[in-house]
Simulated scan of single mutants.
Amino acid sequence: MFQPKAHSAASDRFRHGLAALEQISAGSGKAVTGSLMETAPDLSRFIVEFCYGDILSRSGIDNRTKELAIIALLTAKTGAAPQLKVHISAALNVGVAASEIIEVIQQMAIYAGFPAALNGIFSAQAVLAEQTTAP
């Protein structure tokens, strides 16, 4: 039986969101939110509190499934390559195999078109190359 769970005060949302961000992205998400602090600190807080604290920390599906769904959407969405790279990295961090990521991106050729799938593959190639050259 579905039983909704309410989150408490905003400071708890931020703390909860930071914990989820670190668990999922292993630092790549924190780099994004940190880069916003000088020019758009509220946007950084919105990402941590809402995206990670309220949504991505939910327990309805596992982090692997969440990241694969996000990769599919960001592949289909034009102009989201930076965010796609962050979530490809996060997917690898939560145990998604590179072959699964490639397969999900290829599936998007049907609904989003070949240009979107190609751009997604190029993003995946870049992330995978970074990960193999990282110390």
Rank of each mutant, 00 (worst) to 15 (best):
A9L: 11
A72W: 05
G79A: 08
V94W: 01
L56M: 07
A72G: 08
L68S: 05
D12H: 14
A112L: 06
A90P: 05
L74K: 00
T75I: 00
E100S: 01
R58M: 05
F114T: 10
A26H: 15
L84Q: 01
I70M: 02
S57G: 09
A9G: 12
G17I: 07
S99L: 14
M1K: 15
S28G: 13
E22S: 13
C51D: 09
E100M: 00
S89W: 09
A80S: 15
A19M: 10
A80I: 03
A40S: 07
T75L: 01
Y52N: 06
M108W: 03
D54W: 07
R58N: 07
E22R: 09
Q106L: 15
L36W: 08
I110H: 11
T33V: 12
F14M: 10
I105K: 01
E67S: 02
G120R: 00
R45D: 05
V32T: 13
K30S: 07
I47V: 12
E22A: 15
S59T: 08
A31L: 11
K77E: 10
G29A: 12
T33P: 14
I102L: 12
K30W: 08
S35Y: 10
T65Y: 07
A90Q: 03
F46I: 14
P115F: 05
M108H: 05
S57R: 07
A80Y: 01
G60Y: 06
A116D: 08
L74I: 05
P41A: 11
K30R: 14
G53E: 03
Q106C: 15
E67F: 02
V48A: 01
G17C: 04
R15Q: 15
F46N: 08
A80E: 13
P115R: 05
R13H: 06
S57W: 08
S44Y: 03
L84K: 00
V48Q: 02
G120D: 00
V94Q: 06
I70Y: 04
N119F: 07
I105C: 04
T33R: 02
I61F: 02
I47N: 06
I101K: 00
L118N: 10
D54M: 05
Q106H: 14
E38K: 14
K77W: 07
H7Q: 13
E49S: 01
P41D: 04
R58C: 08
R15F: 08
L73S: 12
A90F: 02
L118G: 08
A31K: 10
A76T: 12
L56T: 02
